[in-house]
């Protein structure tokens, strides 16, 4: 087995007052290392919840979620945070950069959290990844001086700088125009191709899913057509 993530009969329910709202209703899934996986489905289908469960920012109500061999239900909040730091990278729909820090500092941030990376090493890695996302010219700029696409590139750089096993992206293109969104997905695909990093991204945009190795379609918290043939990957322009 080289599945990096497995979900087994995972149920996630939210409590809104006295009403229990099920967001994920029994999902079983295995994701292999290096996959470029898309989770698709309409709004409210449970995409984000599923991503959160895999991303260790939330835990399942029932069922087991295993990330890099560890059952997240058995881990403390602290250990989960550690797991996120070392094994996961996040790309957010709204980019979520730290406004007061410039590009370099934003990308450097997770390395600082790691705590054991020397300044020289940090600079090398940050500069390299920024170059890879094509923002070397903007390395001293603040997020509010960048366009949406550029910000998302910074976010990608930040997610990848720690060499995570998995990168999770929740609707990474939702706040971008289609051309830019397309470029971002292509960048992610490129990174996926060059590294052994698993990418899992959610989207409700069918145009985006075509880059995926595999598409998981969710409907009402359940996998709709898992056996459906994934869309054929397109050639990635570097």
């Amino acid at each position: 087995m080289n599945a990096i993530v497995t979900l087994n009969e995972v149920v996630k329910e939210y409590r809104l007052g006295s009403v229990v709202v099920p967001a994920v209703r029994g999902v079983t899934l295995a994701i292999d290392t290096g996959e470029f996986l898309s989770i698709a489905g309409p709004s409210g289908s449970g995409k984000t919840t599923l991503l959160n469960l895999i991303g260790c920012v939330d835990t399942a109500t029932r069922g087991t979620v295993t990330v890099d061999g560890q059952n997240t239900a058995t881990l403390s909040e602290r250990a989960l945070t550690d797991l996120r730091l070392h094994k996961l990278g996040f790309i957010f729909q709204s980019f979520n950069l730290i406004g007061v820090l410039n590009v370099f500092q934003n990308v450097e941030f997770p390395l600082l959290l790691l705590g054991n990376v020397s300044k020289v090493e940090r600079t090398r890695r940050v500069e390299k990844i920024i170059e890879q996302v094509g923002l070397s010219e903007h390395i001293r700029h603040r997020p509010n001086e960048l366009s949406g696409g550029q910000r998302q590139r910074v976010a990608i750089a930040r997610a990848l700088v720690t060499n995570p096993r998995i990168v999770l992206a929740d609707e990474p293109t939702a706040n971008l125009d289609s051309v830019t969104g397309d470029k971002i997905i292509q960048l992610m695909k490129h990174m996926n191709d060059n590294q052994d990093t698993t990418f899992i991204f959610s989207t409700h945009d069918p145009k985006v899913t075509r880059y995926a190795d595999r598409v998981i379609r969710l409907k009402d918290g359940q996998i709709d057509d898992e056996n459906g043939v994934p869309a054929k990957p397109l050639a990635v322009s570097a």
Partner: peptide, 16 residues
């Protein structure tokens, strides 16, 4: 809150 949440997601502990 978003910023702090982001930091926490990225891997910052509460102590941080």
């Amino acid at each position: 809150v978003r910023e702090i949440g982001t930091m926490r997601a990225i891997g910052a502990q509460r102590g941080f």
